[in-house]
Amino acid sequence: MSTSNTTYYIPHRATWPVLATAGLLTTLVGFANYLNGSSIGSTLMIAGLAILVVMLAGWFTLQATESESGMYNHGVGVSYRMGMMWFIFSEIMFFAVFFGTLWYTRNLSVPWLGGEGAKLATKEILWPAFNAVWPTNGPANVGGHFEPMGAFGLPLLNTLLLLTSGVTCTWAHHGLIAKNRKQLIQGLIATVALGFAFVLCQAFEYHEAYTEMGLTLGSGIYGSTFFMLTGFHGFHVCVGAIILSVVLFRSAKGHFTPENHFAFEAAAWYWHFVDVVWLGLFIFVYLM
């Protein structure tokens, strides 16, 4: 469009947002019914997820088409970048809750259960035999005996995988800027592959935890924090890898220019965010 560099594009008649809402609502109503033991729960959930998949495909296609036809000027690009940055900030706050939970239980509530500070009487009356040492599944030995997850096996490998994927992602970005499409595509393929390899390793790790180490989501506060933090992170890795796959698909179709590649940037930011969260996990969940 000839005027595209001077206009702020205001879309008209949006149908995907309403479908997105319908999909989310159906999924959640289904999930809630499932949790309450209702038989329609899982059906509803699958239907909702199907709506969401259709919606995402449709909405992404629309955005890609509009972007490629030059409808987004610099101002629109700035809005999208701001939107993505603030979205990642909200994600950081979400992870902060679970990191905060880990910190609080390790440094405050578990020592209190062990009688630290003014809590000696509480301990003597309630759980005199409790030895408050991390990792713990609490004074009631919730979930039975378990082994904590060590840092220097799969987790270390996973750290290397993710760090490498951060490098390949940046390498792809350099390729994009240097108009080297081959480097862009190879870099993205490597990044996505490393991402899925990470998820696979984590699946092995979870399998080992559940089958051989007695470590489950129900293993008291250690199991709760371990699986909640690594699980939500793993979910984000999956989401990031899917976003990168979409970007890879678009790169293969010849999308993006050195000046105009918001989708790539957003995916890369998200990927680096996921990477940094993992480093936090590796230090505070596995090493310490």
Binding site: L35, T101, Y104, T105, L108, S109, V110, W112, L113, T136, N137, G138, P139, A140, V142, G143, T216, L217, G218, G220, I221, Y222, G223, S224, T225, F227, M228
Partner: peptide, 23 residues
């Protein structure tokens, strides 16, 4: 965390498992 405490056996807010309702 309320949801997982209720339906998925976590112990975030349960002192018996090492958690804390005050959290």
């Amino acid at each position: 965390m309320l949801l997982t405490d209720k339906f998925f056996h976590t112990s975030f807010f349960d002192a018996a498992g090492g958690g804390d309702p005050v959290l």
